[in-house]
Design a protein around this nucleic acid. Structure first.
Lengths: 243, 243
DNA sequence: CGCGTAGTTGATACCTCTCAACACTAGTGG
DNA sequence: CCACTAGTGTTGAGAGGTATCAACTACGCG
């Protein structure tokens, strides 16, 4: 889990967290960074752990999930290339609030709490970027709260799929594919329902020909029907990434 | 709605957003601030409005609520003295994501987007404070997501009351009182349930003698029973503010 | 081949929403 | 002084969505 690929200013300057920095500033950032590579299905950190660092994912996919004392679990979000994760805890109670697991092979770069604070103090733009990123996530989370409080399971599953397609959908000849494997349990934990309900809902959609799952990967064939179920109030359209 | 009380460095330095600033920095902050006073039941800003500012509440209480296109509504949070609000939108899509209404007479101070960004650039500590504040709210929101996804209405109502007690509880001879008036609908919108379910649950608790409501204000008499219902996994205890 | 993981589907129970009726209060205006 | 109204809260009856439990299938892998 630790062949270390070189970390360039080029790579860093494309990350949202370091957007708008001078090359001198980027050099500072590089100097205190450390890079790691993980295999698939690796636990990057555990909920409750106190040796916190600020992480940015360079390549691969990670699932952030949170579980309660009763064992009930939710998926907080999926982390893709360029996303920061595990970083908020540096500023709050210095414990990771969730688990992080790799879904694929992955490489990350990370900074210690001290290093990140120094960087932010010396280069305020980093802190401003962080506010923007965390703010976006807060808005998403509040949107999700409303969804859970007011909509039913079927619509929540539809929304969950649409969000995933927006974030990580790839167009192929067969339809739009979600780039990484998802179990029914994952879908349930995203949409806030049970494995069983998620399975029933997806089966129904498969029967209707709206989507199918190939080797844990979901292929959507009729986006419009999905959007009709979701009745997306925020009429954002979905522009999948290039393959 | 606009007799302007004087704004002192003293007041500002006690706000979390401006914690740890030099007096020179505080002078900068004061220079670009503008103060306003509102009557009770005043709409401070509307969801979707684009003339966004960063607000800090000096005195009073404000309810932040969000509604969907279908009319379903949730209470996002209550804002008390010292809290910032409406500020994240400066960094994201420059639209307020929710409505803000005063629950009492209130005074706020606010900054334009331009002014706040300049302040953050000149005084990185402000941006760092902002990351911490927004990060805490994100964690709260994610906790709430899990709660909605995995727990049932009664427990969610208990949690909602406990959160309110923690934030704005005052001990009196009769019990712990939530400082501002709350309708059943408010409780429902916080806990993510309906007016009817909230009413049933609270009635049951009144019959059990755990709490009562006097003039829209909830008085909790048996904290322990409430906590038992909530089965609070994060065994935080509740330390009410002084009366 | 057997085992573990994943997925499907039926039966059932129960929580919660929904709809409706009614009580209570405060404020308004005749 | 008394309807009248609007806002709020309570409670019952019924429907319906979803969780839960259980049984079964399918697949991959040692």
């Amino acid at each position: 889990m630790s062949k270390v690929p070189p970390l360039s200013r080029q790579v860093l300057s494309n990350l949202e967290l370091f957007r708008g920095l001078s090359t001198a500033a980027l050099d500072d950032v590089v100097a205190s960074a450390s890079t790691r590579a993980f295999a698939r299905d690796f636990r990057v950190f555990n909920q409750g752990e106190t040796r916190v660092r600020a992480h940015v994912l360079i390549d691969g996919w990670i699932r952030i999930s949170q579980s309660g004392s009763d064992g009930a679990q939710i998926v907080v979000r999926f982390i893709g290339p360029g996303d920061i994760f595990g970083a908020i805890s540096l500023f709050t109670d210095r414990r990771y609030p969730a688990d992080a697991d790799t879904l694929t092979d992955a490489t990350e770069v990370s900074w210690s709490d001290r290093a990140l604070l120094d960087l932010m103090n010396n280069h305020p733009q980093i802190a401003i970027n962080a506010v923007r990123i965390v703010g976006q996530r807060l808005q998403e989370a509040q949107h999700r709260v409303r969804e859970l409080a007011t909509q039913r399971a079927e619509r929540r599953v539809a929304h969950a799929l649409l969000r995933l397609l927006r974030q990580v959908g790839t167009t192929t000849s067969r339809g739009i594919v979600i780039r990484f494997p998802l179990r029914r349990k994952d879908i349930a934990d995203i949409a806030g329902t049970t494995l069983y309900s998620a399975s029933r809902i997806l089966s129904a959609w498969e029967r209707a020909g709206w989507l199918k799952t190939l080797d844990r990967r979901i292929v959507v064939q009729s986006l419009s029907d999905l959007m009709r179920i979701a009745e997306d109030e925020s009429g954002q359209d979905i522009t999948p990434l290039p393959p």
